[in-house]
Design a protein around this nucleic acid. Structure first.
Lengths: 123, 123
DNA sequence: TAGAAACCTGACGTTGACGTCAGAGGTAGC
DNA sequence: GCTACCTCTGACGTCAACGTCAGGTTTCTA
């Protein structure tokens, strides 16, 4: 498929896809005239990249770990980094869950205060 | 307390604290000579700010929601935004959990492949 | 009462993941 | 074969959350 279709199917901009290629996170065949052609599995690849970005992992780290996602083999040092990222993700989840509790408290308190017209006691 | 102590106690840089004040997320008294003096509860405030930043919430949004964290009262439109952020946080958590599964799969597969010397089949 | 350490206000620099624009060539439907 | 849309390669712009440096003042400690 061409870049526009891949963009549409992944919800990622054309610019971003070119950027991924620039960072060597995503590869493409080229047509005779130089246009990018992507295989079907590029969709999954792009979604994986987005997921890792969302976990706060940088291009460089993603570049490092992508080969082992594909091949399933990782050198010990890469494996160590993977574990490091894993624990970072765990920590992020924990922090977000704490934030969620905070938000819930605020929302609950604010809702109640608004409906009763009585402000909550200061914390 | 002075800014250096607050920085140390919160693990946030002095520059960041000044930035928070610039964004009106954090306030301080000033000594006669113009130095910032913080009350004890500033520690909690800074940690809350950090938490919201970690949830991907911008300064502007934090500024909007901070008063209702303090007063416990929120106008309906602010409340709607709070709920929006809440669901965004929920979504982030879900995505991170998915990422965690991916990482676990890769780590497990790569560890096995490395110990057995046999690469995993391509996905 | 030194002098080191902390603090002040600008103000410019940084970084990553793109956005956007220009100018030129490619492609598909009619 | 016309036309509207898609794609190409540069290359500069953006934005948020600070980092960093300069040049000066304040506060603590010996």
């Amino acid at each position: 498929m061409r870049i526009g279709e891949l963009a549409e199917r992944t919800g990622v901009s054309v610019r971003a896809l070119r950027y991924y290629e620039e960072q060597r996170l995503l590869s493409s065949e080229r047509s005779g005239s130089g246009q990018r052609r992507y295989a079907e599995n590029a969709v999954g690849r792009v979604k994986l990249i987005q997921q890792l970005y969302a976990a706060g992992i940088s291009s460089a780290s993603i570049l490092e770990m992508l080969p082992c996602v594909v091949t399933g083999v990782a050198a010990p040092e890469v494996l160590a980094k993977l574990r490091g990222h894993r624990s970072s993700v765990v920590k992020q989840i924990e922090e977000l869950q704490e934030t969620l509790l905070q938000l819930d408290t605020v929302i609950a308190g604010a809702t109640k205060a608004y409906t009763t017209g009585v402000p909550c006691p200061p914390s």
